[in-house]
Design a binder for these strands. Structure first.
Length: 287
DNA sequence: TTGTGTTTTATTGCCTCC
DNA sequence: GGAGGCAATAAAACACAA
């Protein structure tokens, strides 16, 4: 026996002595494999609805009182007249496993819902109510806790799985967003380069011509009326607006993480939009 | 009926707590 | 050291398809 624990059959559901044995009925019988799980117990008048006594034909009985031991076995009351031979046979028959009745299980389930741990007093009470061995009640609770734990693990797993799927989706969306922003940055960078190029070409022209301007050149003014003013048609007002928006919108501060030089350094010139693209501190802090 | 997978009851061994 | 809890496991009982 486990840990030196004793599985004592001390059931006290005594049913009147039909023979000279003070038969202590353990309130269970063994259903045969083909037998339906009909209730084994009939409520005893005056007792709780879950106090039972054996009504079946095959019951485990204890001769504790008579033989002073803990012997238990399966006894067919239909065959009591067979006498000592059967007794001997049953004494040497290993105890079979028995299922609890639906009622017993329901009662235990309710009790488990209230409290899944079993204090000795409650165990005894339950055993008494159900006509089971306290040990059986303890075992049932132990197994029930194990089942509950398994279910809980399954629940936790499902929760984690759902959480993982959400995160995976979010990650996928972020990757898409990142690609989109990357494309945007590339386009804007190209535009900047073009603009710088045009500006430098204009300067060259000015130097070569050495022609004093009719009016002061305001290089900062994008709408100068200077005759050699570059054609700005490639950068429409709308596009410029978009450019400004793209660069200054909060979301645009989050630049995609650059991977393994998949993104060349920004142009080493100052951008006229308020930040220095070569500012590595900014770029690195941006992601 | 039988083979097989699942569930339930029970045991064993180890661990912790008092 | 004993009582009780838990994990692992055995084995009976059960469900169900073929």
């Amino acid at each position: 026996m486990a840990g030196g624990r004793v599985f004592s059959c001390n059931n006290t559901n005594s049913v009147g002595g039909s023979n000279n044995l003070s038969v202590l009925l353990q309130s269970q019988r063994v259903p045969s494999s083909s037998e339906p799980m009909d209730p084994l117990f009939i409520p005893r008048p005056g007792s709780s609805p879950y106090s039972f006594f054996v009504s079946g034909t095959r019951s485990m009985v204890s001769f504790e009182d008579v033989h002073g031991g803990n012997r238990s076995f399966f006894r067919s009351f239909d065959e009591e007249e067979n006498g000592d031979e059967d007794l001997d046979e049953y004494f040497h028959q290993p105890e079979k496993k028995r299922r609890l009745t639906v009622d017993q299980v329901q009662f235990l389930e309710k009790s488990f819902e209230v409290e899944n741990k079993l204090e000795p007093e409650r165990k005894t009470q339950l055993a008494k109510e159900l006509g089971l061995q306290p040990r059986q009640v303890a075992i049932w609770f132990q197994n029930r806790r194990a089942r509950w734990k398994t279910k809980q693990l399954e629940k936790d797993y499902d929760t984690l799985q759902a959480s993982f799927n959400t995160l995976k989706d979010d990650y996928g969306n972020l990757l898409k967003e990142k690609d989109k922003l990357k494309q945007e940055v590339l386009q804007l960078t190209d535009k900047l380069v073009m603009k710088e190029k045009n500006n430098s070409e204009l300067s060259d022209v000015n130097t070569v011509c050495q022609e004093p301007p009719q009016k002061p050149v305001d290089s900062d003014s994008p709408h100068s009326s200077y005759p050699f003013e570059p054609d700005q048609s490639d950068t429409s007002q709308d596009e410029e607006d978009n450019l400004s928006k793209a660069l200054f919108q909060p979301s645009s501060y989050i630049f995609p993480k650059l991977e393994d030089n998949d993104y060349s350094d920004p142009p080493a010139s100052s951008c006229s939009y308020g930040f220095h693209v070569e500012d590595h501190a900014f770029w690195s802090s941006a992601y």
